[in-house]
Amino acid sequence: MTDTPSPQWGPRPEGSPPPTEGPKKKPRRIFLWVFLAVQALFLIWIIVGVNEAGDDPSCEGLTGEALELCRDAGDVGTAIGVGLVIGLWAAVDIILGITYGIYRLGQRRQP
């Protein structure tokens, strides 16, 4: 009998261990971090927008009902602004989700 190794392209002999491909690479979670960063930016945007709403310089010098009306109008504007930001947030999340889905479809292994 000879000590020549068997070719790697043929069938494995009985009892031989399966070939190892080395350590598997840990999958990178780049999309997860990008998605979380986008969520954090929108959340900060909403928090800052709501907190800045009380500092309306156009209400200075007003008293009584005029001051109350001015503040109420500012609150309505803030609510509309927050609603628009939330709508934009949802649209960006949908776009990110579709983009990730297309990316995953392209990375699938073909049988």
Rank of each mutant, 00 (worst) to 15 (best):
E14D: 15
W89S: 03
F35G: 03
D72W: 00
G83H: 04
G106S: 10
D55A: 12
V50D: 08
I95Q: 05
L105P: 05
A40M: 00
R104N: 01
G22T: 03
F35I: 03
T99C: 01
G10W: 05
R12T: 06
G15H: 05
E65T: 11
I80L: 10
P13G: 13
I80W: 02
E65Q: 14
K25L: 13
Q39V: 14
V76D: 12
E21R: 14
D93S: 15
P7H: 06
I94N: 02
I47F: 08
K26N: 11
G49W: 02
P19S: 14
L88F: 10
I95W: 07
D72S: 13
G81S: 13
L105E: 07
G74E: 06
W45M: 10
F31Q: 10
G97Y: 00
F42C: 04
G77M: 00
R71F: 03
G64C: 01
A40F: 05
P7M: 07
R71T: 11
R28F: 01
G22W: 05
A91G: 08
A66R: 10
P11N: 07
G81V: 01
V34K: 02
L105Q: 08
Y103T: 04
E52Q: 15
E14L: 13
T4L: 15
P57S: 03
T4K: 14
L36T: 08
P11G: 05
K24T: 12
G64H: 02
A66Y: 01
L67Q: 10
G77D: 08
Q110R: 15
Q8G: 10
K24Y: 08
W9V: 07
I30D: 14
V85E: 07
E68I: 11
P17Y: 08
T20H: 14
E65D: 14
L88N: 06
W45P: 07
R29Y: 00
L67D: 01
I95R: 08
F42P: 05
G22V: 06
G64F: 02
Q39I: 09
I94R: 10
F42E: 02
P18K: 02
W89H: 11
P23W: 06
G106V: 08
G64S: 02
D93A: 15
P19R: 15
L88R: 01
M1N: 09
F31A: 12
I95M: 11
